[in-house]
Design a protein around this nucleic acid. Sequence first.
DNA 1: TTTTGAGTTGTTCGA
DNA 2: GTCGAACAACTCAAA
Length: 472
Amino acid sequence: MQCLAKSSIRRDTTPMNIWWIRRDLRLQDNQALQLTLQGSADGLLPVFILDPALLSAPAPNRQAFLWQGLRALDEQLRRRGSGLIVRTGPPLEVLSRLRAETGAAQIVAEEDYTPYARRRDAAIAAALPLTLAGGLTVHHPAQVCKADGTPYTVFTPFSKAWKALPRPVSIALAPDRLPPLPTGLASDALPEGQPAMRFVWQAGEVAAAQRLADFLAGPIADYADDRNRLDLDGTSTLSPYLRFGMISARQAALAAWQAIEQGLGRGAETWLNELIWREFYQAILYHFPDVLQQAFNPSLRNIAWRDAPEDLRAWQEGRTGYPVVDACMRQLSGMGWMHNRGRMIVASFLVKDLLLDWRLGERWFMRWLVDGDPAANNGGWQWTAGVGTDAAPYFRIFNPLLQGQKFDPQGDFVRRWLPELRRVPTAYIHTPWLMPEDVQAACGVRMGREYPLPIVNHAAARDRTLAAYRGR
DNA sequence: TTTTGAGTTGTTCGA
DNA sequence: GTCGAACAACTCAAA
């Protein structure tokens, strides 16, 4: 009762519930928010917790995006008569204290499927009245299972079962008005946060909706073909928004279904499939949390990876001597994002040309990606390395020259991210080491000086990798 | 229980 | 230049 006496909060008038915001930074189609409002209490306490266990991981771009998104959410909340409360510390302690301060009854949050989130939530649910709501995915991972109740581990049957489930019919609109915050409730300041690069991402629900509208008005029509082109803006670029729930998976899927009905068939179908891939990897992580530590496929856990820190650094810094690989890596450091085709190219290069452990690449991506999501990132890396569920066949090794020529035919993408190659003729843009001396002189790129020679011979590296995979 | 068909995203080689 | 087959064998999912 001591804390009651000390407290300056009026807690006698309005009973309230806590909306614990984690990766659902939106007011529209937010099941956790709806559930909080539907509870017995009249008051609403939107809370974001700065959890040291999560924020200690180096991810400057994602954090900058998060802070910006929280500011945007705070503004949306204020406009509706509420506001965002920010607190710092281990979530269990923070929530306990907050309940003591305000007399809040229930805590509601959107369910998250990472092993850390599940451990955390289980511990909190054991001590406090925590209710979890769906929303991170369209369908809960436990819903998309085989007839015998076990999870799918192959994409195609998973997607068939996913599509056979009843479609969500409507989304909940953002509430017009929200109950006011109790007076005198302390809130920590949001960190400023410096992104590692000139930030091109506009965070928040409004920006997400705009991005979706732009995608639906243009690129979706040719998505089936153009999504693979590095030199075009053919993708949705919604991944950072989906990562932080600034748009819900359900909103995206509904948009895809509508587009299909409006006759944007092939493009929209392909995009829906990509959304289902996202759900697939969330489900894999949910059912097989160990994938974050080791290969899903037990027979591929003992590949003899090379130990070559110099090669790793060359890959990280984008100076492997393969222009398309280097341009993609510079795109990552330059904008905290990489084209999906690029992710496959550089992942294949790290694993199958350099024969370095896929987990090194997984970690590097998590550090820099603004959309870095443990499930999707891990799924992608295991797929490329050929060690995961439904993995690429061992012999599927990307040839960086062919990939560059196919998906960046004029070299526009390479020139955008590797300005040192701007004057290299298109005929040599993906194979600058083949330039004769006079061409090198003419375009001002001397191999080994302005641009590195390839750090590995692809054909030889390919044979090395085939041997390593056979010999495991 | 057994059987059958299928499995995101590629490359290379030889006709 | 284009085209089809080979690259292994295995596991999954469903009948």
